[in-house]
Computed example of a mutant assay.
Amino acid sequence: MTKKEFFFNLKDELEVEANLDEHTMIKELDEWDSMTAMVLVGYVADNFNVTISAKDLDGITDIASLIKKIGEEKFD
């Protein structure tokens, strides 16, 4: 998956209206809440086989840090 595809798919999965990029502060999105966090965890697990813990979520600030957690090597 390319990063561009990731941004598009993540936007759709999280049902957010804003366009996403690496600088998007994920927890500042209007739609961010505990349910959105759970959807994010499921999306990452299903698409990248990476488990994100509650501690990991605390450390994720922007989408760049999410990509780093997933692993840069998993993107085309």
Rank of each mutant, 00 (worst) to 15 (best):
G71C: 08
A54M: 07
N9Y: 05
D46Q: 13
S34V: 08
D56M: 04
N19T: 01
T51H: 11
D58I: 04
I63N: 00
T61K: 10
V44S: 00
D30T: 11
M35N: 04
A54R: 12
K4C: 02
E15C: 05
A37T: 14
E28Y: 05
S65G: 10
L40Y: 04
I67S: 05
T24F: 00
F48V: 05
E31K: 04
F75C: 13
V50E: 04
F6N: 02
T61W: 15
I26V: 15
N19I: 00
A18L: 10
N49Q: 15
A54E: 11
K68C: 07
G71Q: 11
K55R: 10
D76I: 08
L57T: 10
V41P: 08
K4H: 10
A64P: 06
D58W: 08
F48N: 01
K55Q: 11
M1T: 11
D58T: 13
L20F: 00
G59Q: 13
F7S: 01
F48E: 05
K68Q: 14
E13G: 00
N49F: 11
K55E: 14
G71F: 07
M35P: 03
T36W: 02
I70C: 02
D33F: 09
L66E: 01
D30H: 14
T61V: 14
I26A: 04
I26S: 00
M25T: 14
E17C: 06
E5H: 05
D46N: 04
S34I: 04
D62M: 05
I60E: 07
K69Q: 12
K55M: 14
E72S: 15
E72N: 05
F6W: 09
S34K: 15
L40V: 05
A45G: 12
K4I: 08
F48I: 04
D33L: 13
D30M: 09
D46L: 14
I52Y: 03
L10R: 01
V16G: 00
T51Y: 13
M25R: 15
D62G: 05
L40F: 08
W32M: 06
D33C: 10
D62I: 00
E22H: 11
M25N: 15
D21A: 07
T61F: 13
L66A: 02
E22Q: 12
N47F: 02
L20S: 00
D56S: 10
A45K: 04
E73H: 10
D33Q: 09
E73Y: 12
D21Y: 06
T24N: 03
V44Y: 00
E15W: 06
E72F: 15
F48M: 07
H23K: 12
K4T: 11
M1W: 12
K55A: 07
L20G: 01
S53G: 09
M1G: 07
D33R: 09
M35K: 11
